[in-house]
Every structure is written in structure tokens, then in C-alpha cells.
Amino acid sequence: MATAVAEASVGAGLRASLTRNRRWALIASYASLIVFVIFFLFPPYYMLITSLKTNKEIAELSTNPWIIEKGITFQHYFSLLMDTGFPIYFRNTIIVTICVVAITMVVSILAAYALSRLKFWGAGVLATGVFLTYLVPDSLLFIPLFEIVGALGLLDTYWVLVLVYPTLTVPFCTWIMIGYFSSIPKELDEAALIDGANHMQMLIKVFVPVALPGIIAAMIFAFTVSWASFLYPLAYIFTEDQMVLTVGTVTTLIKGDVFHWGGLMAGALLAAAPPVIIYAFLMDYYIAGLTSGATKG
């Protein structure tokens, strides 16, 4: 193209100026990255520092709050794990999250396949409807849901979260999957249909493997939502052995007008660990899946 011609004719002078521009761009980039990383990481850093201070130092006003001056203590972590329901909350959160992710994926993959490939009557309207669901905030739903939850006998069990979290995850995940499935060439289905596959086989053998990055992205999304959700457990769970991490950490460690800051921060950091690990390993899929869902939807 034009590039080759231009490069040949202009030659070394241009390359030098490009290098100079590149150097400035690099400096500017690193400078802004450092600023951003400080902005993004100073709160978690402070949480970590606080979680390692003694109660006395946390209550102290004369010391530098950003460093530990009076000795590191792991007391807050120990008492969180030994004396509180934290391990139970952790277990419950894991159970809830696994169930929600599984339900979400089954429901949204099935629906996305039907909506993107099986053009039945009302499919278009339904796709729009799924989209609109995303607009209904949980703060509107949680009060009427009390009665449904109560009628099902699920109030104050973590299974209620398995029931209601999909309302937060399914619409978006279906949307990601519709985007992904639409990007799969139609020739693939045709080939599979010639081979005599039915729709279920085609979905499992052809679509799922091809759309794996999208599926992983949707799973991470569902995971994040059900791991971090606050309002539903706040409203529906009140027994210690049914509690999940977000609400449990707050309610265990704030007693009346007494805040156990060290423990709160320790709890927040421990609660954040599983998502951090998952993102660290699967982020590339997440990015690929989300963006293709968003751009190709």
C-alpha cells in the first residue's frame, strides 16, 4: 500500500522523528500509568496496612497512618478466621457462586442459542425483553420479592441467593452469548446439520467449543456479580450460618457503634482474594469475550 512507497521515499529522517515521538509517548504513558496505579492502589494499600496494625495504633492520632509504627500484628486475621463466622461466610459464598454461575451459564447459553439461531415467533421481542431486564434495578425488586421468597420458604437460607442472583447475571450473560453466537459463521451449523446433528448436539459440540472465550467471559461476569452482591443478602439473610461474605463481614465486625477496623479491612482483603486470583488467570479470556460480545452483538 501507500505505506511501503512512503517509507521508501522518505527514509531515515522520518524514522528518526518517529523514534523521538515514540520516546515522548513512552514517557507520557509511564508517567500517567504511575499516577493511575497510585490512584487505584492506595486504598487497598491502606486497607492492608490497617489490617496489620494493632487496635491501639489504629486508634492513635499521632502516628503516620500510612505505615506501621508499632509492630505488625496478624491478630485481626487470626480472630477473623478463628472467632467469627468468616469461614462459614466464605463457604456459603463459594456454594452460592458456583450454583449461580452454573445456572446462569445453562440458562443463558440455551437462550442465546435459541435467540440467535432458531428464529421462532417472538424471538426478536424476547431478545429486546432480555435487554430491558437489565434496566430493572434490584432496589426496586427486593421488596416484592420478599413475598415470593417467603412463599417458597427460602427466606434466610442462602438458596434464596441462588434463586435471585440469576436475575442480575442472566440478562447480561445472555447478551454476551448472543453476540458471540451471532459471530459464528452460519456455514458451521449447516455442516453440522448435514451430518445429522440435532440442535442440542450442535450447541454442545459446535457452538460451546467455538464460543469458549465468550463463555468464560460470561462466567467471570456471573462470578463477580454473585461474589460481590450486597443488597439481596442484606435483605434476605440474617442467620450467621447462612450469611455470605459481603454482608457477613460488615455485620460481624461492626458492633453497635464500635467498628473493628483491623478486622474489617482484613475481611475485605480476604474476600477480594478469590476474584483477584480468578482474574489474574482468566483475564485475557474475559477481555476477549466481553469485547467481542459488545462489538459484535
Binding site: 486504598p43 491502606y46 460488615v250 477480594a272 476474584p275 483477584v276
Partner: peptide, 11 residues
């Protein structure tokens, strides 16, 4: 990645 309710407490 940190659950917002908890990171907001940190803030």
C-alpha cells in the same frame, strides 16, 4: 475486583 461494599468501607 474487590466487592464494592467492602472497598467502599476502606474508602
Amino acid at each position: 475486583v474487590i466487592p464494592p461494599a467492602l472497598s467502599t468501607l476502606g474508602w
